[in-house]
Amino acid sequence: MSEIDNNTVLKVARLSRLRTSEAEAAKIAPELNGILTWVEQLGEVNTDNVEPLPSPVDITLHQREDIVNDGDCQEDVLANAYETLEGFYVVPKVVE
């Protein structure tokens, strides 16, 4: 599989929304390569006709009545926000 170079690190960092400098990317690249090279041993396992296992136990997801059973807790929801205004979260300007 492909070697992770600094540009790949910068691309992954962007997808991850982690501001990363070129110098940091150069430090991270060999660490990620080390881990990904190590996991490549999984290639030796034959997984033909094996279904992926997303969850360890067979639980049928339970369903509830489709009724509103939560809410009326605006203060709680906003209690830990950095900035709020009139019951809303405030973020930097999105639309010019």
Partner: peptide
């Protein structure tokens, strides 16, 4: 990275199969 387009099958799905 392992969830990104082009690598999902090779890493993530492969790992889930071996998990089984």
């Amino acid at each position: 990275y392992v969830l990104s387009a082009g690598y999902y099958d090779a890493y993530y799905l492969k790992a889930q199969k071996i998990r089984r």
